[in-house]
Design a protein around this nucleic acid. Structure first.
Lengths: 226, 226
DNA sequence: CGCCCGTTTGACAATGCTCAATGTTCGTGG
DNA sequence: CCACGAACATTGAGCATTGTCAAACGGGCG
């Protein structure tokens, strides 16, 4: 696939003018990462940002003890590490390919030059920043004000919105899901067991069928305990 | 003080061109809030963002149970609620004046028009977004990977950086500090007691004198328990 | 002086983590 | 096709941390 086609496959970029897209296609660099491969480390000098064309990537922080917290998991069409554009400093977190992944890399300096020329490009990027900020605020809220069952319920309801169905697959391992929810696999397993016992959902492997949406909503809000 | 002077007192805006500043001064609206007064609510339609000229403002989320988590406390010269520019939706959190505060309000629609005209203004704003994002990532990390003593130690070290001194005042009540660290006053009080016992700091009222920086750094990283 | 609010302390409960063991799934190779 | 191993997932017991509830303390202000 041509670079231009790939750029157009990214939702946030597809509305850009042809000239903006052409400019971008001249600066991007294609890269491939194997499953499990590190894309960048937290302490690494940030040289640019990425657009994921295919595969799956996790952005995560590591504690001194080795405990991991996943900030975000990205799929095809999404942009990540875009903060790098504005800080010629370290990346704020680590990134690893969860599956074999193909990405487009946007070098910081060149991209910033384009930004100065196209206000439209800047507006798109600012919209993305706003979205990320909201996601992070939601994460802080969840971590500090909600318990694990509420966080799991919120996540399941979020997936339901995305998939527009009560039946879906989790797409990531339980270990990864626990890390994404700010907990550990054992705790997640116990909470899921309770959800099953209370007939809130059906779970087999990675397949989920939500059964009691009302209960999920109550639990997500912290109005109901399990 | 003239609006133009006030705009120049805001660090992130002071490098803007005279014409940009003049454009801004034409759209801003001055507002005053008394201590304890709500500036906006979470569910409220976001009509613009703010620059704090004098006073103190907290941005916070509320749980269904009434528990509060402070996301940020802003002082003079800082900009807040800037995400509002890109979403004609609800504010993502609540804002309340902690002291009598004087702010400049930037209406969303008018500001966005200026953005389209001045790429430079956009670049400044994007830098601000990046900073906020990093702050939020740090918060998520602290909440999910660190215990209360580590969060307190980090906060004290952060203040030390700002003040460039080992001696300073906390500026906010213990209750507010607890909420900022994602805990409750009782827990904070107990942790502080331990810090005092271990001679890590001296504390009297709101006055703090850091005594064992090394220990604070170890605790902040989670390498050492108290 | 006495009241009020913020703070501290105490006793207790609960949530979630650690460590260890057991189950389960799935891919590989005999 | 089955057996085996490795990685993933679940379960159990015990414990650490933090939250809840209630009471006492203390400092500042009318």
């Amino acid at each position: 696939m041509k670079t231009l086609e790939q750029l157009k496959s990214i939702p946030i970029l597809k509305d850009l003018s042809v000239s903006d897209l052409n400019s971008l296609s001249e600066i991007v660099v294609s890269k491939t990462y194997l499953a499990g491969e590190e894309i960048f480390y937290e302490k690494e000098q940030a040289k640019g940002f990425f657009a994921l064309i295919s595969g799956k990537v996790k952005i995560y922080k590591l504690a001194f003890t080795g405990k991991e917290h996943i900030l975000h998991i990205f799929g095809p069409g999404e942009i990540f590490a875009e903060v790098a554009v504005f800080f010629d400093q370290e990346y704020p977190a680590n990134a690893m390919a969860l599956e074999d992944s193909f990405v487009l890399f946007f070098p910081r300096v060149e991209f910033k030059r384009l930004l100065g020329q196209s206000p439209d490009l800047g507006l798109h990027l600012m919209g993305l920043f706003s979205l990320r900020l909201r996601e992070m605020v939601a994460k802080v809220e969840a971590l500090s004000l909600k318990e694990v069952p509420a966080r799991l319920a919120s996540h399941l309801l979020f997936f339901r919105e995305i998939k527009k169905k009560n039946e879906f697959t989790l797409e990531i391992s339980k270990h990864q899901l626990a890390s994404l929810l700010g907990t550990i696999p054992e705790t997640l397993s116990r909470v899921m067991k309770k959800f099953k016992e209370k007939e809130i959902f059906y779970l087999k492997g990675n397949k989920v069928i939500l059964k009691d949406i009302e209960a999920l909503q109550q639990i997500a809000l912290g109005k109901k305990r399990i």
